[in-house]
């Protein structure tokens, strides 16, 4: 049985007896898991490749629904409702729970249009309002200075680190309540990585964050809570500072001391 500490904050998401199975598989890829996700905090999910951390992350915005026949069991509670229900409005859910991917995903359009995209999807047409919101998002993502003179330029002309900030700006522009980061720095150089980490920490006052990372130092640097997963099981969820110093589970200890992984 996993060691799960109680979190002092209110939880934004509550995973209850949750299980996820990919289409065509008999065995689930995420086994019976129960865990709270703290509000306005950063929760990191760590573990060796194939442990199910990215799979779990993609359940929170029902990304698995894009591909047929994947199966969710149990509950994930968000604002008092189970978001795994068939009647869940996925468009609305994804507006409230944003996502940043392993690689920067600048859309084939201008920098401005990239940031405005999510707001336009929601029907915002007012030019000045759009401009204000785009500017604010770019400032919040600490990229405004670099791009303010070329908002009309193709977003694919930006560097990798800039593009990832652009994607963060695009995600926060629609003011989500939760942001999911799926190894956001795995394609970036160390300097860009440091910048993104700093940004993630700054964002937590406004959004609750879940970050999947294969980099334990990154989890230690940015997160408040860390969950360690292994072979589809959540082994331990604890306060980050405690977990890296005094892990409760043997498996966790072996992993963070580099005995496997």
């Amino acid at each position: 049985m996993a060691t799960i500490i109680n979190i002092k904050e209110e939880s934004v998401l509550d995973v209850k007896d949750f299980q996820f199975t990919y289409a065509g598989n008999d065995a689930p890829s995420v086994n019976k898991t129960t865990m709270p996700i703290a509000k306005n905090s950063i929760t990191a999910l760590i573990g060796p490749s194939g442990c199910g951390k990215t799979t779990l992350l993609r359940c929170f915005n029902r990304m698995h629904d894009l591909y047929p026949d994947n199966r969710y069991d149990g509950e994930i509670l968000f604002k008092g409702r189970n978001i795994l229900q068939a009647k869940e409005d996925l468009i609305n859910l994804r507006i409230q729970i944003g996502m940043i991917f392993q690689k920067p995903t600048a859309f084939p359009m201008s920098i401005f249009d990239n940031i405005a995209y999510g707001m336009r999807l929601q029907g915002m047409k007012n030019k000045t309002e759009l401009q204000d919101r785009v500017e604010k998002a770019l400032k919040d993502a600490a990229i405004w200075k670099e791009v303010k003179d070329r908002l009309k330029a193709d977003a694919n002309g930006l560097s990798g680190g800039q593009q990832q900030r652009l994607c963060i700006a695009r995600a926060i522009a629609v003011e989500p309540e939760v942001l999911l980061f799926d190894e956001p720095t795995s394609a970036l150089d160390p300097i860009s990585t440091a910048g993104i980490e700093e940004l993630v920490v700054e964002l937590k006052d406004r959004v609750s964050i879940i970050i999947v990372t294969h980099n334990m130092q990154q989890a230690a640097r940015v997160s408040d809570y860390t969950g360690f997963m292994y072979l589809g099981d959540l082994i331990e969820l604890g306060k980050t500072e405690d977990m890296f110093v005094t892990p409760k589970e043997k498996l966790t200890e072996e992993y963070i001391t580099g005995k496997f992984g």
Binding site: M63, L66, R94, T105, G118, L121, A171
Partner: peptide, 27 residues
């Protein structure tokens, strides 16, 4: 069109048609 690009647009609340007209066709 890379899957991850399409997923990014879905992750912002796009419908299939939004993704096709805004991402796949331009790409």
């Amino acid at each position: 069109t890379p899957d991850i690009l399409k997923e990014s647009a879905y992750a912002l609340g796009g419908t299939r048609w939004d993704v096709i007209k805004d991402i796949i066709i331009p790409y």
